[in-house]
Simulated scan of single mutants.
Amino acid sequence: MGLAGVDEPGVLALLEELSATLARLTGDTGAQSFSLDDLRTGGACLAVARDDRGRLWGCGALRPLATEDGCVAMELKRMFARAGTRGVGAALLAFLEAEALGRNVEVIRLSTRRVNERAVRFYRQHGYLPCAPWGRYVGREASVCLEKRLQWSASASPPA
């Protein structure tokens, strides 16, 4: 597990595979709400999961998110684990949450399509709760918006 650049070998193919999978599951690739340029802006990051031979098994991204309440937030995007993998999604999510904690992020928000019931269940099982929609998700009945308030431990200092 580690951070990666979009131009690293295999990363673009993995993101394209995610888009194709989303299109099959939901009828939409998700491209309207995400651009590779999002990962090239300050503060964004992409995490990838690799096996011991370097093969890519999954990915997930965080990008800065402006909030009306002024809390430090990031949006979770492009979460994907290849079919047949076990625990990759959970490991990626834990890695990205730790990365966010290290950046003094208070909350991670995400939107997924209601029809993607497996994803909704996955996020709920990992402590993500319904929240008010924001930005492009306001008024979109097809979307469900979730958030997780991050827990600060003795090893992670709270935001200043």
Rank of each mutant, 00 (worst) to 15 (best):
residue 4 A to F: 04
residue 5 G to D: 14
residue 8 E to G: 10
residue 8 E to L: 14
residue 10 G to P: 02
residue 10 G to Q: 06
residue 12 L to Y: 11
residue 13 A to I: 03
residue 14 L to E: 01
residue 15 L to H: 03
residue 16 E to N: 13
residue 19 S to C: 11
residue 20 A to I: 03
residue 21 T to K: 05
residue 23 A to K: 14
residue 24 R to M: 12
residue 25 L to E: 10
residue 26 T to L: 08
residue 26 T to S: 13
residue 27 G to M: 11
residue 28 D to G: 09
residue 28 D to A: 11
residue 29 T to M: 04
residue 29 T to W: 10
residue 31 A to K: 13
residue 33 S to Q: 13
residue 34 F to K: 08
residue 34 F to Q: 09
residue 34 F to I: 12
residue 34 F to H: 06
residue 36 L to T: 09
residue 39 L to Q: 05
residue 39 L to I: 09
residue 39 L to H: 04
residue 39 L to E: 06
residue 39 L to T: 05
residue 40 R to M: 15
residue 40 R to D: 10
residue 40 R to L: 15
residue 42 G to C: 03
residue 43 G to V: 11
residue 43 G to I: 10
residue 44 A to N: 07
residue 45 C to F: 07
residue 45 C to M: 15
residue 46 L to W: 03
residue 46 L to P: 01
residue 46 L to R: 07
residue 48 V to S: 08
residue 50 R to W: 02
residue 51 D to F: 04
residue 52 D to R: 13
residue 53 R to Q: 14
residue 54 G to A: 07
residue 54 G to Q: 03
residue 56 L to F: 04
residue 57 W to Q: 03
residue 58 G to Y: 04
residue 59 C to R: 03
residue 61 A to F: 09
residue 61 A to Y: 08
residue 62 L to M: 12
residue 64 P to F: 14
residue 65 L to R: 07
residue 66 A to F: 11
residue 67 T to H: 08
residue 68 E to W: 05
residue 68 E to Q: 15
residue 68 E to C: 08
residue 70 G to M: 09
residue 73 A to I: 01
residue 73 A to G: 06
residue 73 A to Q: 05
residue 73 A to L: 09
residue 74 M to I: 02
residue 74 M to F: 14
residue 75 E to P: 06
residue 77 K to A: 12
residue 79 M to H: 01
residue 82 R to K: 12
residue 84 G to R: 01
residue 87 G to A: 04
residue 87 G to I: 10
residue 88 V to N: 01
residue 92 L to N: 01
residue 96 L to Q: 03
residue 97 E to S: 06
residue 100 A to I: 05
residue 101 L to I: 09
residue 104 N to F: 15
residue 104 N to A: 15
residue 105 V to W: 03
residue 106 E to N: 00
residue 107 V to D: 06
residue 107 V to K: 11
residue 107 V to P: 01
residue 108 I to W: 02
residue 109 R to A: 13
residue 110 L to K: 07
residue 110 L to Q: 06
residue 111 S to V: 07
residue 111 S to P: 00
residue 113 R to Y: 14
residue 116 N to D: 15
residue 119 A to V: 07
residue 121 R to D: 11
residue 122 F to T: 08
residue 124 R to G: 08
residue 127 G to W: 01
residue 127 G to C: 06
residue 128 Y to A: 01
residue 128 Y to T: 02
